[in-house]
Design a protein around this nucleic acid. Structure first.
Length: 711
DNA sequence: TAAGCCGAACTTTTT
DNA sequence: GTTCGGCTTA
């Protein structure tokens, strides 16, 4: 590239220092909104433009597909036509998958190995547990899944785990782990954690291969390093050769995934493991107002375990941060929705953030009532939807008859009269012959031991799959999918199963065909497009819903908000027990909750509303709630409390609004709208009987209730 | 075999 | 208060 300066010109001095740093290991502590992605992208462009290395020598790792594609896109923009062929940008899992596809022999995998997603893994484990005759109450698939993934993420195989003779629980767990691994190996299945562990082990044990990659990757860039788990860090360490340079970007204050195995210690360990690492802090924030940053800084300063960092901005102080004390969760939602309704800009500039997904419902209802379009981020993703997984299971089985996971999913979908009894005998046959369930059908039919009632549907299923397989052979991917949906009669099945959901499912199936068509266009040169498509479906589960409604208020959990920014942010449910969550309080994990709050606050560009409620319905129970300690940790002078303009009674206040009269329309934070139908007593002892629109009526002591007088 | 009823659980979730 | 999964009944 002729114009190297263009890569540096748009950066501030510290960003420039990071981007143009001489080779050597670098740790960039990048605060929220400090231009983290920008620095990563410009660093890659800088390396290429100054010809320190070829694209082929660079590896850039991210945590989400979104971040990876964003980075790839921005690199291409910046380099404007200069080839980046050979550059590896992807998620840990994506990169490991690629590696294992290339080196399946060294990794001791079949070249047709399939990825087992979380759901498939759980189903597989469930079958193993049942096969071993274990009590489902004591040995839940979920618990076992957690145990296995947890150990794989620490790089531990069953034989590495020390067990004492008396530890029966652990012994049994290890034996299940072992059985599961053997099952996967036999059937060419690789779960998410295995992608990483297998790659690590292959590189560790194969000197030639390791040397090749260590020599190749002269620049290894890692984003969101505070989120790496043990095996991910080990993998990185294995890739670092004597001429490799680490460029690590992270923010210890934004580490919010310890419950998922992320080790915040990794970022603190870098200096020990690579003593010559140069540390650079990016503290200038380009996102939020001075006040919002002050609030964030003050809050996070309460954490003890920090590398330390203070965000600042050259911009304005801006609005104060608002605090609204709601009477109930409904009132909180009403307030938020009313404020949103006043908004002059685009809906998509607004986010409502909360600690738990269950909180979204009241916000949804309030927004729905006001006809404000919204979108919930997170939840079930496209390729995780049952109907999508059903079709993909057919596709899998049609191309790999011995895939038992796929087989189990669709053997009786739609209903073919093959029930648990028949299936159980098939499983037994499969175990006995050490074969797949598909082959077990042939054995079972040949042995003539089945009743006619069981044999007939099995035979027709087997014929159906064979015929469909011949029919779709050689056809394009989207056509195969179309045929599967039609021939299997899936639409009719969903219609019968749940007529209300059927339309939505149908739409998703159409979407799947479109997605397949797009995939074909993009990867037309791929030799095995079916496998590639299936792998992508597992690794990149896609968005929750289509992007059709672009301009929407965004509702999401704080975890889902990481990395995003909005002009106007509402942070709801700041209550003890909810945020910080009770479990975190009990586990003494308050610092992570505080970081989560810090993440939430730093999402806001211009205006931030903090909300808490004095009363909240949870698990169908209504109870009192107390303001979160995080509110108390923010200096009062940075906060402006919001009060209602309408007449309302104030608990323990001197002035009790006496303007309530018979017949007045009122609103109660918990019970909703109503009319005053009786009145007795005076002053603080005044009691009002209110008939609510839900049909109930209640006596309310004015001094202790929170009634609002309506127009 | 399949539909319907009842009891238990319930933070966060990417790959 | 909802959802999921297991158990019972037709």
């Amino acid at each position: 590239m002729e114009d190297i300066s263009q890569i540096l010109d748009s950066l501030n001095p510290i960003q420039r220092e990071a981007v143009a740093a001489p080779t050597g290991h670098l740790l960039i502590l990048a605060g929220a909104g400090s231009g983290k992605t920008r620095v990563l992208v410009h660093r890659i462009a800088w390396i290429l433009a100054t010809q320190q290395a070829q694209a082929y020598n660079i590896l850039a790792v991210t945590f989400t597909n979104k971040a990876a594609s964003e980075m790839q896109k921005r690199i291409n923009q910046l380099l404007d036509g200069i080839s980046t062929t050979g550059l590896w940008v992807g998620t840990f899992h994506g990169i490991c998958h690629r590696f294992l596809r290339m080196h399946w022999q060294e990794a001791k995998l079949p070249n047709t190995f399939q990825i087992l997603d979380s759901d498939d893994q759980q189903r597989t484990l469930k079958r193993i547990l049942i096969a071993q005759g274990l009590d489902e109450k004591t040995w839940t698939p979920k618990q076992v899944q957690h145990f296995i993934n947890n150990h794989k993420e620490q790089g531990l195989r069953p034989q590495h785990i020390h067990v004492e003779a008396h530890e029966t629980w652990l012994k049994r767990m290890l034996s299940i782990y072992q059985t599961y691994d053997e099952h996967c190996q036999r059937n060419g299945l690789v779960d998410f954690a295995e992608l990483l562990l297998r790659t690590y082990e292959t590189l560790r044990d194969n000197d030639a291969l390791r040397n090749t990659y260590q020599t190749r990757f002269r620049h290894i860039l890692v984003d969101e390093f505070q989120d790496t788990n043990t095996i991910q860090y080990k993998l990185i360490q294995t890739l670092v050769g004597k001429d490799s340079h680490l460029f690590i970007v992270g923010d210890d204050d934004q580490s919010i995934y310890s419950w998922r195995g992320a080790k915040i210690e990794n970022i603190q360990r870098i200096n020990q493991d690579y003593p010559n690492t140069h540390l650079i802090r990016l503290e200038q924030n380009y996102r939020s107002t001075g006040t919002i940053l002050a609030v964030a800084n003050q809050l996070i300063a309460n954490n003890k375990k920090r590398l330390g960092k203070n965000l600042w901005t050259a911009g304005e102080k801006g609005d104060p941060v608002y605090l609204y004390t709601a009477y109930s969760d409904l009132d909180e939602a009403r307030f938020v929705a009313d404020k949103i309704a006043e908004w002059q800009g685009k809906w998509q500039e607004i986010a409502v953030l909360y600690r738990t997904s269950a909180q979204s419902r009241v916000f949804e209802e309030a927004l729905l009532q006001r006809n404000i379009p919204y979108r919930i981020i997170g939840g079930l993703r496209f390729y995780e939807r049952a109907e999508i997984k059903d079709v993909l299971a057919y596709l899998r089985l049609l191309h790999h008859r011995h895939n038992d996971t796929a087989f189990e999913r669709i053997i009786n979908l739609p209903k073919r009269g093959i029930g648990d009894k028949t299936l159980e005998s098939l499983r037994a046959t499969a175990r006995q012959h050490q074969c797949s369930l598909w082959d077990a059908i042939q054995h079972a039919l040949a042995s003539q031991q089945l009743t006619k009632r069981a044999a007939t549907p099995l035979l027709s299923f087997s014929t159906f799959i064979e015929e469909l397989s011949q029919k779709i052979a050689g056809q394009p991917l989207h056509e195969q999918i179309k045929q599967i949906i039609q021939q299997a009669g899936l639409v009719a099945h969903y219609q019968k199963d749940d007529p209300v959901d059927a339309t939505r499912r149908q739409e998703n199936l159409d979407e799947l065909q479109t997605a397949a068509e797009q995939f074909e266009k993009l990867y037309y040169s791929e030799p095995d497009i079916i496998s590639a498509f299936l792998a992508q479906a597992a690794l990149e589960a896609g968005e929750g819903q289509s992007q059709a409604f672009e301009d929407c208020v965004q509702l999401m959990t704080l975890h889902a908000a990481k990395g995003l920014e909005f002009t106007l942010v509402f942070l709801g449910g700041l209550e003890e027990g909810l945020f910080p969550h009770q479990n975190s309080i009990d586990e003494g994990n308050l610092e992570e909750e505080r970081r989560l709050c810090y993440v939430g606050i730093t999402r806001a560009r211009q205006t931030l509303y903090l909300c808490h409620s004095e009363n909240r319905a949870q698990y169908g129970q209504r109870s009192n709630a107390y303001p979160s300690r995080f509110i108390a940790e923010i200096p009062r002078e940075l906060i402006q409390e919001v009060r209602l303009k309408t007449a309302f009674s104030v608990k323990s206040s001197v002035a009790i609004d006496a303007s309530f009269q018979l017949g007045d329309n009122v609103r109660h934070p918990t019970y909703g709208d109503g009319v005053i139908i009786e009145q007795e007593g005076q002053g603080e002892l005044m009691r009002l009987r209110v008939a609510f629109s839900n049909g109930t009526s209640k006596w309310l002591l004015l001094a202790y209730t929170r009634l609002e007088k309506m127009g």
